[in-house]
Amino acid sequence: MKRSKPERQTRRALHQLQRLMARAVMRPLTRRDRMQVKWIDGRPTEIVVNQFIKPNDRLTSFERLEIYNRQYWFRLRDCFYDDYPGLRAVLGDKPFERLADEYLTKNPSQSYTLRNLGSRLVKFLVANPKLTAPNSELAWDLARLEWAHIEAFDNAAERPLKVGDLSGLDAAKLRLRLQPHLTLLKLEHDVADFLIGIKKQAGLRNEASNAMEQRRHRAGVRTARGLKRRVNFLAVHRYQDGVYYKPLEPGQFILLSALQKGATLEAACARLVRLKLAGDLGATVRQWFANWAALGWFYGLKPSK
């Protein structure tokens, strides 16, 4: 239905007002967590805000809008704080807050749910290594693992295939799908145990006093400095509604990654030959598939091209 002109104007006017207010609400705070006194074009913010917000007998227009501006940032920082405890422990509170503010300024939420707030963080960190220096690569590892954890927590789980479902199918044409909750990671540092430890501490912190929180937090930073640099492979997945980090051998990672990218079973297995694994390759791969199928990692069959 085509809207009449007055209605279009109505919508446009409402839209413009909301766009202006949203711009003010989402602008970064000052170092002291206050609303910026200068508007985007250099005018005093107060003059801009006075045009659309009424003052009252206790607060100026500026102060009234500032409540929303501060709440916006406090809410998003809180969410980020909860979603990335590992990254926070590595960077420390202040640098983490600076990082969160930079990221959220350049990547405002585009989803109705705060769950997706960190969906573009890894890309942002790689593009802005100064924000995480001198621990950039460690920070990337943690951000990837923590995002994979979020994905594993509540992404879809399709009806899994059993080993028997695969028998008799032509490996040259067979394409398997991996569960949407499963993420395969190649990491440069041993971050899995570190993050598990941090999450346990966070659980304890919820019931501890503030004084204890500070002490525990510093302990987290100290541990992070000792994290070993070691290439390792992980499958982050969900099993019976719990999130697990399963270490993978290099061959397993290569095989699963190839399947995830859409290779046929035969083509994916062919990549293993180059690794020259010891023992009976066929028996080894069959055992792997039996384990993965038991964990329900495969579903459906991609149509062969």
């Binding site: 109505t10 007002l17 766009r19 989402m26 709440q71 916006y72 998003l76 939420s109």
Partner: peptide
């Protein structure tokens, strides 16, 4: 209330201007 504009979400419950036009929309 409103809380998003141009596909960007504030995740807040922002107040409406109390106008007849806004009520219609």
């Amino acid at each position: 209330c409103w809380g998003s504009v141009d596909g960007r979400y504030t995740h807040d419950l922002l107040p409406m201007p109390y106008t007849f036009a806004a009520a219609r929309v």
